[in-house]
């Protein structure tokens, strides 16, 4: 499935991803986007080779490693068996499917890994279900499933929110999003996502949602409590 995606990570994000400097949650969102998007894959390849050249061209200076141990080290390393290419190629890479009420969705590579051991869905208000993923202590990562006709409360966040569409579509004040789309919202952008046909997403949030309207504002302290508790558990 070569999906035409319209919403991509910025070049800055792709470069930082190539450096290995993004959080795990964010890196996973970008990795999953790359499964849909050949142009971002190309960008990452270019960044990787640029970064590699820069790295090799830099003079490490005086504080290199002590190579005195290198003979012992070499012997130890070269006495280890090497990987047999065939075992890698034939390693089964079954994509994992996620089952919601009326649909099953085949997940991109990295998310297959994430969901391999199963996920636990939890109902929220407004026809929205989430499955929390323990991947990253610095960011909240979930699968989010919006039932057909559902709408999230109008909200904003303290940090960045990234939503990667996996199946179906959703829309908000700024556009409509399809599978593979990488949607980034900054803390200043208030938005109300909704979905007519239903939508499965992977979402990353580096701080709890701050709801800005109506009764849902009451949810805030509660949400924050849950999030903090989750943080403490993972310590």
């Amino acid at each position: 499935m070569t999906t035409q995606t319209n919403h991509h990570p910025s070049q800055d994000l792709l470069k930082t991803f190539s450096e290995g400097q993004l959080s795990t949650g964010m890196s996973i969102a970008i990795s999953a986007h790359l499964d849909y998007c050949s142009s971002c894959r190309q960008s990452v390849e270019v960044y990787e080779s640029e970064l590699a050249s820069e790295w090799v061209a830099t003079d490490p200076g005086a504080d290199g490693p002590q190579l005195s141990e290198s003979n012992i080290l070499m012997d130890r390393i070269t006495s280890q068996p090497q990987v047999v290419p065939i075992t890698q190629a034939t390693r089964p890479r079954r994509p994992v499917e996620l089952h919601m009420h009326e649909r099953s969705v085949r997940l991109p590579g990295v998310l297959s890994r994430v969901a391999e051991k199963g996920v636990v869905w939890k109902k929220l208000a407004g026809g929205i279900n989430t499955a929390k993923l323990t991947l990253d202590r610095d960011a909240q990562c979930d699968f989010m499933y919006m039932k057909p006709g559902s709408q999230a409360p109008r909200h904003t966040h303290r940090g960045l929110e990234v939503t990667l569409v996996l199946d179906g579509t959703f829309e908000d004040e700024l556009g409509e999003y399809r599978p593979g789309d990488f949607v980034l919202r900054e803390s200043t952008q208030v938005h109300t996502p909704r979905s007519d046909e239903g939508c499965l997403c992977y979402s990353v949030l580096d701080s709890p949602l701050l709801f800005t309207s109506g009764w849902s504002r009451l949810l805030n302290p509660f949400q924050r409590l849950l999030f903090n508790r989750q943080l403490r558990h993972s310590h």
Binding site: L34, V114, S234
Partner: peptide
Amino acid sequence: LKRQPDGISADDIYAETELELSV
């Protein structure tokens, strides 16, 4: 170093894409 949860590694994130989403 940050004591992040196990279960995912860089090799999963930076795996070569084999167009696993093909039908």
